[in-house]
Nucleic acid binder design. Structure first.
Lengths: 173, 173
DNA sequence: ATCAGTCAAGAACGACCGTTCCTCAATTGG
DNA sequence: CCAATTGAGGAACGGTCGTTCTTGACTGAT
């Protein structure tokens, strides 16, 4: 019984993730969310409890639906080198929210810190499988993050990471 | 004539940079600044014009007094490898404000974007001088940034970058 | 000693923050 | 078809935001 929901919860989370990926947490107001998500304040608080609750839902969705698939592909692909190269391409948006979460939310929110720490370990593991020397995986994960980070400031060569990757591959086992 | 200033402008800028390096721009309030800097609101607006004005002054000071010396040392040192290794060590705080500026201010503030783009080019140039293959410098700069980024989320091995560096050096010309 | 000029001190501004409340519309089980 | 239940709508809450104004204390030149 009762009036049925007039919005798709997953779509709302997806749109929230997009918004939180573009600006810092404190830079996204509840008014912004209500306006761009098309959901009423009341429903938003009913479903997610708070702005932080919606943020955490958006972050979890992003890690599960945007980041994890990329890692799964890297783990199962027949051509790991191509997968790595794709990750090292900076003109993508499948790590933006993760980077913003690491830089500005993790230091202030333990739950965010735990979430991103877990996913970064997964990235390390996936990257390691595609490398001649597994020990450099954490550093290469950092390179991936750093290239995306640079892209946010504009003016980065999209294939800067490819050069490093070839250097590593040509020298490794 | 007039009453002399009761605070050291440089010290205020330095303290502001420290605060802006620890939290996102919108997470630092003018009240926070007034309290921890020990400067009165009035003086702050008189000298810097606005919160953004103080932020830009802090960023410029940080880039000139904290980042540039590291690059200068890397350019002039007799042991470039050691300098690079130091930069690849993640438990330092001489890039925090730069990273935060790149991630969350540059996309929203053109002046910040220009400042950090310039300094990133300087980092590339300094790093390139210390490498066997100059072309991988932008990627290694990204690695440096990425390692510091990961350090903000906690639980990173401080020497993760060293492994990559040795890998590169042992294989290059 | 006086006066112009600068700074310190803190109250106060309107705007916006995240959150809650109240009322009405829509739906389904009886 | 009516009662019960839930979402939508929008005003409103206290608090905090960045910024400004008013007042008085201090200083150096006249």
């Amino acid at each position: 019984m009762g009036r049925p929901r007039a919005f798709d919860e997953t779509e709302v989370i997806r749109a929230a993730a997009e918004l939180f990926a573009s600006r810092a947490y404190d830079g996204v107001s509840v008014d912004d969310l209500v306006t761009t998500l098309g959901v009423h304040r009341n429903s938003l608080y009913k479903v997610f409890g708070s702005k932080r609750g919606l943020y955490l839902a958006a972050l979890r969705w992003y890690l599960a639906e945007r980041v994890s698939p990329v890692l799964a592909e890297l783990r199962t692909t027949a051509d790991p080198a191509a997968g790595l190269q794709a990750l090292l391409t900076s003109d993508r948006d499948d790590l933006d929210l993760l980077i913003l979460a690491v830089v500005e939310r993790a230091p202030a929110d333990q739950e965010v810190a735990d979430l991103v720490a877990g996913v970064l370990r997964e990235v390390d593991a996936a990257v390691a499988r595609a490398l001649p020397a597994e020990a450099i995986a954490p550093a290469l994960t950092a390179t991936i993050l750093g290239l995306r980070l640079r892209a946010r400031a504009g003016g980065t060569a999209p294939d800067a990471g490819t050069v490093l990757l070839h250097h590593i591959q040509s020298s490794g086992t």
